[in-house]
Design a protein around this nucleic acid. Structure first.
Length: 631
RNA sequence: GCCUUGGUGGCUUAGUGGUAGAGCACUUGCUUGGUAAGCAAGAGGUCGCGAGUUCAACUCUCGCCCGAGGCUCCA
């Protein structure tokens, strides 16, 4: 007689005979079976076809949700570690977590190169075929210490743990809290993606480890999809598009410094124009400060002590100068140049300033990370009670500007770092104010403990690039330190100057360089008309139509449209191909028909065509598209 | 800075211990062609830089510079 078991799912109990398979249960409960990799009943993880023998709560492990992916990739990391210790018995596994896309595992005492990947992948596939179960065991600290006595990294982790569990697959035992997939067999596609150095506990002073990255999927089809996505992302790479579209370049004579070409400057200036207008509307005034300033200023601001390794220096006559890495100290000198009253507040001074930072060579990355960049900075001086309101306004302005590009972003709140200036109480208040503003706006955010600037906590906006990496762009920083250091005061309503203004540092683009890099990738080079370098190109079918083409060009030029005539002797097919590669927004094709009827033929970037259009009608359409910033 | 990896005409790339090919782009000529590459010819490279090994180095070794992917850092 079959024993009855009870399975709880989503709060409801269902009764089954013991020995029923998970697949059968799912069918009864009308659940989507296709995406389920494993089920968990109670503490037991089972393959979907295996019989369920005990009562318990049913949990489904699928690759479609974040948790399922995490478990899947974490298990894949174990497979990698297993393969490595089989091939390189002296290697010491340390940690191997899942990441946003895939997983990695860090090893000590492992020296390999990319050429070893096929060998390792072969071993991993072998392990998968072995159909090794992930077996959990809970052990005592003493036992764990014995088990991992040859691995000082694992021992260090054991020391910090209260509940210790291990997972065993085949002969490979790893310290791990789990959970895991039931068996290695669930992995149907696995591959290694890259190799890197890493530090134990992310500390450059500690051991240098070898990090191997990989990705795995429950089906081969998902791996193919992933590969296609990677190729597409590489196609959108702003560095490649930047070279192809002749927007900017880097030269050996200035590593990390951008050379903006004519077409790139069109994007830059369009953004600047947009930015200026939005800031005018938001109540900002503009200031500008020098790039080179004396050492004394940087000593006073704290940069000399806290930021020196990232700064460039020079000497003028016999004095030491620094090239500014930030705009704030210069801006403060303007504030100090005259007396201020609370009646002026909030005082919003924007400055698009050229900053130089000596970044380490390994971190430079196209436009995203350079050594010299234009920051769309602003400093807001206000009363303490105005802070929250001003922060809200900055967040709203940022949101408005990002929406104009269709950017998705996430917000992080970075708190007091180890190396900080000032009093803890001020920091606590500043952090609470920033968090309060975000809560009022109902914005989601994650807290980044200890990641603030040395002078204050900050709110960061992060935008994703084409490969899924996120870049910090906008930032709002609350600063009680600079006003203190520079003894900033204002005349209060009590008739005394014994008052300290609050200071907010903020930037919306972050830097023009980084923002344009993201912009290029976001649109795969096909920028919205208002900031596109090649708005219109006129293509003639034959040279004899050039006169008419130049007449049309003049009409567009007079309407401030960026227009050029392709007067090469190429065929129309070739001209269209080149315009397409240059991401021209609109191509105007001019042939006999157009000349005879005094019209133009329009072809857009998608290949859609419209014949017999009047130039004036086209200009109106363009103006509307530009004004409304369509994308 | 550290780990991995690469550097051949403007760009993409083939290749060898006996000093280099191709495609695109460029110039010229022919072609005047209706929607993603018309035909032909020509010009263009001390094979990243420096040193070493060798009769001989673009090729092997070392150092440096620069690029790529990470780590750390960061707008």
């Amino acid at each position: 007689m079959a024993k009855k078991i009870s399975i709880k799912y989503n709060g409801k109990s269902h009764s089954f005979s013991a020995g029923v398979s998970a697949l059968d249960v799912m069918e009864k409960l009308k659940l989507d079976k296709k995406s389920v990799l494993a089920v968990q009943v109670g503490t037991e993880t089972l393959e979907t076809t295996k019989p369920i023998l005990n009562s318990g709560e049913l949990m489904l492990l699928t690759f479609n949700d974040a948790l399922g992916k995490e478990i899947f990739w974490h298990s894949s990391a174990h497979v990698l570690a297993d393969a490595i210790v089989r091939l390189y018995p002296n290697a010491k596994p340390t940690i191997g977590p899942p990441i946003e896309e895939g997983f990695y595992y860090d090893f000590d005492n492992l020296k390999i190169s990319n050429e070893d990947f096929p060998k390792i992948e072969k071993e991993m596939k072998k392990i998968i075929h072995e159909n090794n179960k992930f077996l959990r065991a809970e052990i005592k600290k003493a036992e764990a210490k014995k088990l991992f006595k040859n691995n000082k990294f694992k021992l260090e982790m054991v020391e910090d743990l209260d509940d210790i569990s291990t997972y065993t697959t085949g002969k490979f035992v790893d310290l791990c809290r789990g959970p895991h997939i039931p068996s290695t067999k669930v992995i149907h596609a696995i591959k290694l993606t890259k190799l890197s150095g890493a530090y134990w506990r992310a500390d450059a002073k500690k051991a240098q480890l070898t990090r191997i990255y990989g990705i795995a999927f429950p089906t081969k089809e998902l791996l193919t999809e992933y590969n296609v996505r990677i190729v597409e992302a590489e196609r959108r790479d702003h560095r490649k598009l930047g070279a192809k579209m002749d927007l900017f370049s880097f030269q050996d004579e200035g590593p990390g410094f951008v050379f903006w070409h004519a077409k790139g400057m069109i994007i830059y200036n369009s953004l600047m124009e947009f930015w200026r207008e939005e800031h005018r509307l938001a109540g900002y005034e503009m200031v500008m400060t020098p790039i080179i300033l004396k050492k004394e200023l940087w000593l006073k601001s704290g940069h000399w002590d806290h930021y020196k390794e990232n700064m460039y220096f020079t000497k003028i006559d016999n004095d030491d100068y620094a090239i500014k890495p930030m705009n704030c100290p210069g801006g403060i000198l303007i504030y100090k140049n005259s007396k201020h009253s609370y009646r002026e507040f909030p005082l919003r001074w924007a400055e698009v300033g050229l900053d130089h930072r000596h970044e380490m060579s390994g971190v430079l990355h196209g436009l995203m990370r350079v050594r010299s960049f234009w920051q769309d900075d602003a400093h807001i001086y206000c009363l303490p009670e105005q802070m929250e309101d001003e922060i809200i306004k900055v967040v709203e302005l940022t949101d408005k500007i990002y929406k104009a590009f269709g950017f998705e972003y996430h917000i992080e709140l970075s708190t007091r770092p180890e190396k900080f200036m000032g009093k803890k109480e001020d920091w606590d208040l500043a952090e609470a104010t920033l968090a309060g503003a975000l809560k009022k706006l109902k914005k989601k955010f994650v807290v980044n403990h200890g990641d603030g600037a040395f002078y204050g906590p900050k709110i960061d906006f992060h935008i994703r690039d084409s490969l899924g990496r996120t870049w910090q762009c906008a930032t709002v920083q609350l600063d009680f330190q600079m006003p203190e250091k520079f003894d900033l005061t204002y005349m209060g309503d009590d008739g005394t100057e014994n008052h300290r203004p609050a200071m907010i540092h903020r930037t919306v683009f972050g830097s023009f360089e980084r923002f344009i890099g993201i912009l290029i990738e976001h649109f795969a080079g096909k920028l919205p008309l208002w900031c596109a370098p090649n708005q219109v190109r006129i293509l003639t079918i034959a040279e004899k139509f050039n006169d008419y083409a130049y007449k049309v060009r003049q009409q567009l030029f007079d309407a401030h449209i960026r227009v050029e005539v392709d007067e090469s002797g190429n065929t129309i097919g070739k001209k269209i191909r080149e315009a397409q590669l240059d991401k021209v927004n609109y191509m105007l094709v001019i042939g006999e028909k157009e000349v005879d009827s005094n019209t133009i033929a329009i072809r857009d970037r998608t290949g859609k065509q419209k014949f017999g259009v009047k130039t004036s009608t086209f200009v109106k359409k363009l103006n509307k598209e530009i004004k409304e910033k369509e994308f």
